[in-house]
Design a protein around this nucleic acid. Structure first.
Lengths: 192, 192, 192, 192
DNA sequence: AATGAATGAGCCTTCATTCAT
DNA sequence: CATGAATGAAGGCTCATTCAT
């Protein structure tokens, strides 16, 4: 009999619901408050106990991995796109993610520090390989263009994003930054 | 006779030594651990009590202002340099500072947030004005080159720096980033 | 196995015990040391960690509200008392509370400062209304007697209490003070 | 040769100036911020070093004694006043002091706690003796009126003063309190 | 398996008091 | 004697992590 004074323990069946709620809350708070947002704030926003968070995600990194796995998956899906526009779309999405979720980048940094053989950057490089090759073949990228350049450019955009105190100016700041990159990094379409 | 349990009070004459010790410790720890390093760690590293730090620098920003005022001064001195190479030197020094002391950039961000009329960015833009004008006249920068582009580029370099978990790779990562910027941003000379 | 270095985590079931322990410790220390007693002293006296105190009572005022809500409730119960003696009992209890728990008064002052629409004084005035009306009707209070007079008299008794350094003399000092008030404020019965 | 970097050490001749400056600052800050105002705030307001304050007044009590000795002296002068109005003036001045300088009362309390044979209250009682005797003889105070009643009444006024969060209402609150005291305590004249 | 409370270390800040010059 | 800096204890608050139920 559920106590009238405590929340319902909904049992094992709720586990995946809880996990999803934590992930959604984490994504939202990572985006709003950054990667270092207090974990208890995430649990609270998810409407679950602290224990649930730790059960599903023993460390902050585990949680961030799960949150941003979706980002990886989305990027990989986009990379599988065949057209000659593939690289452009991928780049634009990377920029959007960096702007909207700087925590994505911070997570990768944290992971590389904590887990020496974390493969995030390699995974990103790998998914960029083929679209970039096609761009080179199509002449929309120079022969020397390399996935590492793209990852570096993402880090550059990240730098502009996190040093902008006024969110209303972030887009303009990022546009100025993109303007400094080589032309083969397509700019963000207006209003995008 | 100084107590064996408390540190010696070296008297007011030590004030400037202590201030200098705090500044040195702060510079070192800002460089090593970033702008958000605990203030008590700085006091400890300087070999002074907490109170000394607060007496000299009531807030973290006051401390960072004092530490990085030297950076501003150095850059302004460099900017007063005449020759057509002025902008190149300034840019290289900005990059070095950003790499060695990412906290410099973080301080500016914090100041802009906390003190709406903080003039750091304007001061940087102002000192870039003249060297950049000369560079444009000498044809080593395009007519459209603007101090705001330079500040944006610094933020981009910052992004690369703080996302590099392995300090041994920072230089290579920054070089790759500089390679993506327009040619009028001179690269760092080898071994520099 | 609980560590020998850390206290036992008695689990959520202990929550209400802990809350009660904090309240009891707070009441005791408020009475002994006044409203400004360090919060960590309260946590220590309650045998709980700092966090527990902050979890249950995020601010000093929250804690004091909880402690002194009992006082309000007791006074309201007393006020519901019918007979013509109602006001006399209420007054005597108010005096006792003020003497034993000057922090009660200090809490109301703090609340008025921190929360402009704190209703403590209005609540006290309201509960006095009816008993005082009956006292006026019974001729034991003058027609002009007003709840505000009663609250003022409580503040006067408070003044005598907190300026008495020797607790053994507090009763005598308060009796002298009551002797200066109009007769419709019944004195404390001897030995009371 | 006075250093250009530190304030002038004005030598022994300045001692009494400094003492006076500290007293003036202390009176002002005691009145504004209460008896527990930080001592370094007093030194700062007086424009002297901490050491000066401690040299002249080793403890807070020593400082408060010196500040409020003037109050005692003023009251004693007033008490020497012969007319039948003597007590009334004395009482009004006591009330004014209590309202404007609650720290006066707090000092007496602190002194009684710290120095068991502090004679402040006796001194006050003594200076009240004669004026009160005259008032009794003139029929403006009852035969039972006693200096201890007056001191108690001061403590009552103090209670009203320190529990008033809004300084703009202090006068009204005190007037209500005076209205509850026996008639032989003359009220404050309007606008007084 | 979920709950949500407990713990305590850590950091921030203030201020009474001491003391070299 | 004055100066004014140094000290460090104290207290406030937060949050990562653990754990009884």
């Amino acid at each position: 009999m559920p106590s009238s004074r405590t929340r319902h323990n909904r049992g094992p069946a709720a586990a995946s619901d809880n996990r999803a709620a934590v992930l959604a809350a984490a994504r939202s708070l990572f985006a709003d408050q950054g990667y270092q947002v207090p974990l208890n704030a995430i649990a609270r926003a998810a409407g679950v106990g602290q224990g649930v968070l730790y059960r599903h995600f023993p460390t902050r990194l585990d949680l961030a991995f799960a949150v941003f796995e979706e980002n990886f998956a989305e990027l990989e899906a986009l990379a599988a796109d065949s057209g000659p526009e593939g690289f452009g779309r991928l780049w634009r999405r990377l920029v959007e993610m960096t702007v909207a979720e700087a925590a994505f980048v911070e997570m990768v940094v944290d992971a590389r520090r904590a887990l020496p053989d974390y493969d995030g950057p390699r995974r990103l490089a790998a998914l960029l390989e083929e679209p970039l090759r096609r761009a080179r073949e199509a002449g929309s990228a120079p022969a020397t263009a390399d996935p590492r350049d793209v990852l570096t450019a993402v880090r550059m955009v990240y730098g502009v994003t996190v040093t902008e105190p006024d969110r209303d100016h972030t887009r303009a700041a990022v546009e100025r930054a993109l303007g400094l990159l080589p032309r083969w990094f397509p700019p963000i379409p207006e209003g995008g």
